[in-house]
């Protein structure tokens, strides 16, 4: 396959990506991942962080069983590249969440001034990680809604500093936004793309 493209077709490419993601499954999957992370924070149970990756594993099977029979198949790049991007995105997200858990639970071994810095800016650091993760998903998987989620996520965490309220609630609120958006999109998608007899 010749990868040279003389024509700039970014606008059309964006529209096709939007179409590809209109089933809301990515929003649902990542919303559930964020909700699980929120539960880990609220319950103060870092041991359960391993559960967070489970929804990510289910994304492709759901895409294949729900979306593909209705919408058909589109490959934006070679399957290997696509699979690599998706795996990288999921691994990045999980790695970031685990890094956060490690950072906030193992600060005891660090110098006092570093501990104080982390303690005083914990939510700010967390908002940075959250924003960057969601921006990475937006860029890697070409889904513009995730730029908005990144902004909303950061604002919710900052709100939890200013009001104040528990960080877990801010995370759960973000998760609820993603999940509800995902469900709404999925319902609309199923209406727009009914299953046809072969």
């Amino acid at each position: 396959m010749n990868d040279t493209k003389l024509l700039k077709s970014k606008g059309l490419e964006q529209k096709l990506y939007l179409t590809y993601h209109q089933d809301g499954l990515l929003d649902l999957t990542i919303g559930i991942i964020i909700a699980l992370f929120g539960l880990v924070i609220l319950a103060d149970q870092p041991a359960f962080v391993g559960l967070i990756a489970i929804p990510g594993v289910l994304y492709i099977p759901f895409k294949q069983s729900i979306s593909r029979p209705r919408m058909g198949l589109i490959r934006f790049e070679s399957e290997q590249k696509q699979a690599l991007k998706l795996t990288l995105s999921m691994l990045l997200g999980v790695a970031v969440l685990i890094a956060l858990i490690v950072l906030f639970t193992l600060t005891g071994g660090m110098p006092e001034n570093i501990q104080a810095l982390i303690r005083d800016n914990m939510r700010l650091i967390f908002s940075g990680f959250l924003g960057v993760s969601l921006l990475a998903v937006a860029t890697l998987l070409n889904n513009r809604r995730f730029y908005l989620y990144a902004v909303v996520g950061v604002l919710l965490v900052w709100a939890s500093m200013l009001v104040p309220f528990h960080l877990g609630i801010a995370v759960m609120a973000l998760a609820a936004i993603l999940i509800l958006t995902g469900i709404a999109l999925l319902v609309q998608f199923i209406r727009d793309y009914p299953l046809e007899d072969e």
Binding site: L12, L73, R75
Partner: peptide, 10 residues
């Protein structure tokens, strides 16, 4: 032109 490939249905 914009993508790698797509199926008939899509």
């Amino acid at each position: 032109y914009t993508i790698d490939s797509a199926d008939f249905v899509f």
